[in-house]
Each structure stands twice: as structure tokens, then as C-alpha cells.
Nucleic acid binder design. Structure first.
Length: 415
DNA sequence: TCTGGGGTCCTAGGACCC
DNA sequence: TCTGGGGTCCTAGGACCC
């Protein structure tokens, strides 16, 4: 007898757009897009015209002339997303949140209280609709991978339960791109081998897959194609890295242009690291050039950092190294900084003053403490008066914001 | 057709150690 | 001195996800 299907995957439909239609009834049933220059989310009515998230606003208007653009209610997205996930949490503590609008849950331990998994899934959908006012699709299956596929198949506003006895019949006729980990590149590579469905993938010799995709990816995909997915629900996952990036349009590859942006990015990241006492040891910088090719440089330190000016200085050095290696590239289109190897719980006062040869590198040194005190003062003022009250303000630096900061914050993982 | 921003994981080569 | 084997860490790049 096969095991019971107890894994749920719940996914709010066209989340940002659905919230806008909830808040403003005149938008219901209409093609709408959240955003302006860039489409951050599109309603199903807009998707029917080919409008997609990430698309330039101009292109979206071409596809759908009657498209209504709305600026986002970002605070509401956070509140309503939290509320929807909380409904799932009323059934089981085993909830793994994937993003603002999506979560896995394992209800194996609570069926004696609430009934079988399909009944729980129906109740969750009804409650989210009744209490919050939003459509949510749910997939129920024996594994995370299959539950996720089931919820995608269920969209919009549906429920799909995959019986363990017929899961391969369900899985094998679906296109490969529904699989977790199959993006445009892998899809194209598989298509060259005439592999279009998950069933065809399942019967492709392991050697062929490994030659095509590498040993790890080949083996993983083959296992998923047979619904062998060992992943458990992880209720509390901590972030592995924190980063920020900024598209620049086209800027000359010169200090005067990249330094203010790097300081702004370092400020955003280091503030988050300090707030959670999670400094990091590895700093990575990415520079994208005008031709959209990019290069990265990273450095791993002996001790973790979270001071704004320390991070900014390291990032500047790394960008200079990238530019030195690409002397023909004269134009930068994007800058990114990421900090990884994060500590779990760190005493920030112990941070060392890096890059200062005349200062002994030891805990509590003069410059280390000075930076710590300066950052702490800025953090406190911002806690009371808001981000722009003080600091290396993007306004002062003339930073161009392509998306609202509130939208950035929605995408940030809890550190 | 040249989309923005925040993330995760994998690979392959090299350094270094035992 | 050369050879072999295993493990860990770092770096750069890439695919993918939401």
C-alpha cells in the first residue's frame, strides 16, 4: 500500500494583482498590472493578453491597450500574505514558507484533529477566500515536488489531489518545464533529445541525462521524474546570504559613478545584517556591463563584518578588480553586492577594522569601535524616524530608484 | 526581446592539509 | 623525490526560483 498524500503546497493566485482587485472592486474582472516602468505582477485577465511579470510596461501596453496600471499597496501585500499563511498554521506547525505568497505544509500529524488532507486543503481554501478575500490554489501529494506541481496545475483558484496510487500517470504526461529545476536552458537541452514530457525524461537513460546536465542535476531530475523526492518540510530555515542590487541604465565605469551606488547597497545590506546580529565573512560583487554580460569577484575574510563603511570599502576594491580585468568594458548597467557565510548570533562590538594597516586588528580597537558606534547611532535614529532621516541617503547620493524600496523589502528573506 | 530585485544551489578548478 | 588518495575551503560562473 502506498503512503498517504499529506504534503500540501498552497499558492495565492496572481497575488499582488488579486490584492489590488480586492482593495478596489472596480478593478475586478479587468486586465491590470502592478508597477509602471516594469510590470511587477499581472492579473489573469492581463495574462490572457500575454502580459507577464517582469515585462517592460511599454511592451505590456502594446500587448493589451486597455491594461490598467496600479501602483502597489506593498504594506497590504505583506499583511495579507502573512494572514493567508497563518491560516495554514492553524492546522499544523510544520509550515515552510517559500515566499510572500507560497508555502508547503505537512499535515500528517494533524489529520486526527481536522480530517484527511483533502478536507484540510478544502477548508484552507474556503477560509482564505472567506476571511481574507483572496483566491488560493492548493496541491496535495506524497512529496513536495508533486504537491508543487499539483498546485500549478490547479491554478487558478483550484485544488488538485494526487492519489499515491496514480501519481506517475498524473506526472508523466506533463511537460518537463513544470518540474522544479527545469528552466529555459534545461528545457531547450532536453528538447534537443526529444524529451518533452516528464514521462520521456523518466525513461531517458541516466547516462544521457548526466552527460547533458551534469551528475548532480541529472540524478536529481531523474529521481523527481519518478517522484522520488526525499525533501522534508523545514519549518525554520535561516537565510544563507543577504544582498542588494541596482540597475543603473548605462553608467560610465568610473569611480564617481559606482562609489555612491556601492555605498547605498552596502548601507541597505549592512543595516539588515546588524539588525539580526548576523555579520558575514564572504563579500561578493557582481558587475553587469552594457552588453548584459557580467563578472563577479568575491573575498572571504577571517572574521565576519557588518559595518557599513567596511562593506562599502571591500565592495569598491572588488569592483576595481573586476574593471581591471575587463579594460574594454566602459559601461556598467548593474551593480550588486551580496554577503554570505553569515554568523548565527554575533556580538557586533567585536567587529574588526579591516583594511586599515596602521590600526591593530583586534576586538575593541579604536576604529572598529568607532564604526560600530556610528552605525549603531544611525540604526537607532532610523528605527525612530525612518530610513531617510539620516545616513547615506539615496536622495543625497542621487541614486535612481527603478523600483520602490517597499517592493525590495517584500522580496527580502528574514535573516 | 534585451525586465528588476532578492535569493538558492551546483560545478569545476585550484590550494592546502593529512 | 615521486606517487596516490581523501577531504575541505575558496573562487567564478551559471541555472533557476519567486
Amino acid at each position: 500500500m502506498a503512503a498517504t498524500a499529506t504534503i500540501l503546497h498552497a499558492d495565492l493566485d496572481a497575488f499582488y494583482a488579486s490584492v489590488e482587485q480586492l482593495l478596489d472592486p472596480s478593478l475586478r474582472g479587468k486586465p491590470i498590472a502592478v508597477g509602471g516602468g516594469v510590470v511587477l505582477a499581472a492579473s489573469y485577465e492581463a495574462r490572457a493578453f500575454g502580459v507577464r511579470g517582469g515585462m517592460p510596461g511599454r511592451r505590456a501596453r502594446e500587448l493589451c491597450p486597455q491594461l490598467t496600471f496600479v501602483s502597489g499597496h506593498y504594506k497590504e501585500y505583506q499583511r495579507l500574505g502573512d494572514a493567508a499563511i497563518k491560516v495554514i498554521g492553524d492546522f499544523t506547525p510544520l509550515v515552510e514558507r517559500i515566499s510572500i505568497d507560497e508555502a508547503f505544509a505537512d499535515v500528517a500529524g494533524c489529520t486526527h484533529l481536522f480530517g484527511p488532507p483533502d478536507e484540510i486543503a478544502r477548508t484552507i481554501r474556503q477560509r482564505v477566500r472567506a476571511e481574507i478575500g483572496l483566491p488560493i490554489s492548493v496541491g496535495v501529494a506524497r512529496t513536495k515536488h508533486l504537491a508543487k506541481i499539483a498546485s500549478q496545475v490547479a491554478k487558478p483558484d483550484g485544488l488538485v489531489i494526487v492519489d499515491p496510487d496514480t501519481e506517475l500517470q498524473f506526472l508523466h504526461h506533463l511537460p518537463v518545464e513544470l518540474m522544479w529545476g527545469v528552466g529555459p536552458v534545461t528545457k531547450a537541452r532536453l528538447a534537443e533529445m526529444q524529451v518533452l514530457t516528464i514521462g520521456q525524461l523518466a525513461t531517458t537513460p541516466g547516462r544521457s541525462l548526466e552527460r547533458l546536465l551534469g551528475p548532480a542535476a541529472g540524478e536529481k531530475l531523474a529521481a523527481l521524474a519518478w517522484n522520488r523526492d526525499p525533501r522534508q518540510i523545514k519549518a525554520h530555515r535561516r537565510a544563507q546570504s543577504a544582498g542588494a542590487q541596482s540597475a543603473l541604465g548605462r553608467k560610465p565605469a568610473q569611480e564617481q559613478f559606482f562609489r555612491p551606488t556601492l555605498l547605498h547597497l552596502a548601507d541597505r545590506i549592512s543595516t539588515r545584517l546588524r539588525a539580526k546580529a548576523r555579520p558575514g565573512r564572504t563579500v561578493t560583487v557582481r558587475v553587469r556591463f552594457a552588453n548584459l554580460k557580467s563578472a563577479t569577484r568575491s573575498v572571504t575574510l577571517d572574521a565576519p563584518i557588518s559595518a557599513t563603511v567596511t562593506l562599502a570599502a571591500l565592495a569598491e576594491d572588488l569592483v576595481r578588480a573586476v574593471l581591471a580585468d575587463h579594460p574594454d568594458e566602459k559601461t556598467i548597467s548593474l551593480l550588486a553586492i551580496s554577503v554570505s557565510h553569515l554568523e548565527e548570533d554575533w556580538d557586533l562590538e567585536l567587529e574588526l577594522p579591516l583594511g586599515l594597516p596602521d590600526e591593530p586588528c583586534r576586538p575593541g580597537s579604536r576604529i572598529g569601535l568607532a564604526r560600530w558606534a556610528a552605525d549603531r547611532a544611525v540604526d537607532k535614529i532610523r528605527d525612530r524616524f525612518g530610513w531617510d532621516a539620516i545616513g547615506y541617503g539615496s536622495v543625497a547620493l542621487g541614486i535612481f530608484r527603478s523600483v520602490p524600496d517597499e517592493f525590495r523589502e517584500l522580496a527580502e528573506k528574514d535573516l
